[in-house]
């Protein structure tokens, strides 16, 4: 799902940064209010975990790459605003050290993977948790969230042929099926299994970690 440099036109890059700046602002503001100094190392560890799970990615013809993000898992444990920060940090390290995901496309990549994905995952998990238990709902949340994020990515580069000739040449007719197929069939199941496995493991051995204070909208105290 990492969009490389030169795949999005300059205008799209600028718009995505403009969208992400308030998101980052709120995430850091909320984190500053809610996070004790004790949670700072925790967020750093989660960024590192997210970085590592994203390293295992495979390319999608007509699309970009498929991999799990870990955003849903982080959102379930610490809340979606925390996931915004953790995944953003992981994406920044990847863009600068590996050229995986462009620097100019960082706004777009963070929008898809660090904003849309954890928020979708968090609310799906919260909606299902009461009905079907933590493990099943975390699997479903991770599966749906990664697919929503992939479709957002596909729309962002799929509109390029219409608005910015010379950048991504694949129209929406190719980008959406290519990205959806890859994420429905491969990255989605991986994300579901890994997220559910970790949630299951935590429920068994450290249930307190699933009950931590969340940094989420509307959560006070």
């Amino acid at each position: 799902m990492h969009i490389p440099d030169g795949y999005l036109g300059p205008a799209t890059c600028a718009v995505m940064f403009a969208v992400m700046i308030p998101v980052w602002y709120f995430a850091f503001k909320r984190a500053g209010e809610k996070l004790g100094p004790k949670e700072v190392p925790m967020l750093a560890v989660l960024s590192a975990v997210s970085f590592l799970v994203m390293m295992f990615n495979w390319p999608v013809p007509d699309g970009t790459t498929a991999h799990m993000v870990g955003g849903t898992l982080i959102a379930i444990i610490l809340g979606p605003w925390a996931a915004v920060i953790a995944v953003t940090v992981a994406l920044v390290i990847q863009a600068f050290f590996f050229g995986d995901g462009g620097i100019t496309a960082l706004g777009a990549n963070c929008f898809n993977m660090a904003f849309v994905l954890p928020f979708a995952g968090y609310y799906i998990y919260r909606a299902l948790e009461g009905r079907m238990g933590k493990i099943a709902s975390s699997a479903i949340a991770a599966y749906i969230a990664i697919n929503i994020a992939a479709i957002f990515a596909a729309i962002e580069f799929g509109v390029q042929p219409y608005i910015a000739p010379g950048y991504c040449p694949y129209g929406l007719n190719l980008s959406i099926p290519a990205m959806s197929l890859a994420h429905l069939a491969t990255a989605g199941p991986v994300a579901a299994v890994v997220t559910a496995a970790v949630v299951g493991y935590l429920e068994k051995s450290r249930p307190d970690l699933l009950e931590l204070k969340k940094i989420a909208p509307g959560v006070t105290e």
């Binding site: 980052w24 850091f28 984190a31 500053g32 996070l35 700072v40 190392p41 967020l43 750093a44 560890v45 960024s47 590192a48 970085f51 590592l52 920060i85 953790a86 953003t88 940090v89 992981a90 920044v92 390290i93």
Partner: peptide
């Protein structure tokens, strides 16, 4: 500040 701090620590954790 918190972004730079987390970035610096995440790098070591990796």
């Amino acid at each position: 500040k918190i972004f730079v701090l987390i970035l610096g620590m995440a790098y070591r954790y990796i």
